[in-house]
């Protein structure tokens, strides 16, 4: 388990990470989200022992990163932001070097390197020097570096940054395949990615933790969660929209033109209130020709925006 408690980092006058606490269990993939500059990378650097925290601790598998950093770092695989690698080395040479530093020798070392190369689909470029590879390959080389010792804890800073959609898919696939017996923290600002791989999400804004939930749980906070969207062909019966708007559980409604007729959207007073049955019976009583109806699930980007821009007043100081 990775246990982060009250982690804080101050740079001169600016507090980059402010009293952040959370825990990640084996089998979980924790998505770490936040606007650029919110403190994601700083937090990860403290968890991996690269930056000493101003206060607070991170305990990795029972080892405190500050007190017993060496044993803690042995259990971590870390993919730093922008996937730094030694460009002049070959893929084989680089992974061999990492394996050696991690204490692998002889046939164990060769096996660790060849396994990592296979898992990250690097076989065809094994003997090329890393500087000649494309960005996607470089990212995978650095990824191979962090899983080479089969660590129980993976910390990945924007693992799919700068990759094309196919490569993103491959990297996510690799993360999912390994997640059963590992605890994974990955930072991203791609909302699809959270949906695709994460079992839990935390959002930090301006250094503070502002949400800790499952992707579904977050989506339920969206004001469009439970909204009913109905497509009516030909004309909308006179006064139907107003009548729906007067329902006790409906807060507001929208009517828009659609090539096939009219689209009516009604929003519940509270996210998740079941308003569909009332709307449907109302509409069929009035003889509306309903083509399709669906209940919206809510959107992560809405929730993300709502959470991270609510205190617009002090967000202006963030870019200092």
């Amino acid at each position: 388990m990775i246990q982060v408690s009250q982690l804080t980092k101050r740079f001169d006058i600016r507090t980059a990470v402010d009293n952040v606490s959370f825990a990640v269990e084996k089998g979980e993939i924790l998505g770490f989200m936040g606007p650029n500059g919110a403190g994601k990378s700083t937090t990860m650097r403290m968890i991996t022992g690269y930056l000493p925290p101003s206060s607070g601790t991170a305990v990795i598998g029972g080892r405190d990163i500050a007190q017993d950093g060496l044993s803690a770092r042995k259990m971590i695989g870390y993919l730093p932001e922008n996937a730094p690698v030694y460009r002049e080395m070959t893929v084989q040479g680089f992974l061999g070097f990492i394996a050696e530093v991690r204490g692998f020798a002889g046939s164990r070392r060769r096996k660790a390197v060849s396994d990592a190369i296979e898992k990250c689909f690097l076989t065809e470029v094994g003997n090329q020097s890393i500087g000649t590879l494309s960005k996607g390959f470089k990212q995978r080389v650095c990824f191979a570096q962090c899983i080479l010792h089969d660590p129980p804890y993976l910390i990945l800073d924007e693992p799919t940054d700068g990759l094309d959609p196919n490569q993103k898919h491959e990297v996510r696939q690799m993360i999912r395949n390994m997640s059963a017996e590992k605890a994974v923290i990955l930072s991203t600002h791609i909302l699809d990615e959270v949906d695709a791989v994460c079992t839990r999400v935390i959002i930090i804004d301006d250094g503070k933790l502002v949400a800790d939930d499952t992707p579904d749980g977050l989506r339920k906070r969206s004001k469009t969660h439970g909204a009913v969207s109905m497509l009516v062909s030909e004309a909308l019966p006179e006064g139907l929209a107003e009548e729906i708007g007067r329902l006790a559980d409906v807060s507001e409604y929208q009517v828009s033109d659609d090539p096939a007729g009219f689209r009516l959207r009604a929003f519940p007073r509270q996210p998740g209130l079941p308003i569909a049955p009332q709307i449907l019976s109302l509409a069929s009583n009035r003889g509306a020709r309903i083509q399709s109806v669906f209940v919206e699930q809510g959107r992560l980007d809405e929730v993300f925006r709502a959470i991270t821009t609510s205190d617009a007043g002090d967000s202006s100081t963030r870019s200092v």
Binding site: R73, Y78, P80, R87
Partner: peptide, 12 residues
């Protein structure tokens, strides 16, 4: 190049 972060987060 950022490789310092890589090396110093190894068990070194």
């Amino acid at each position: 190049l950022g490789t310092m972060e890589l090396v110093l987060t190894l068990p070194v």
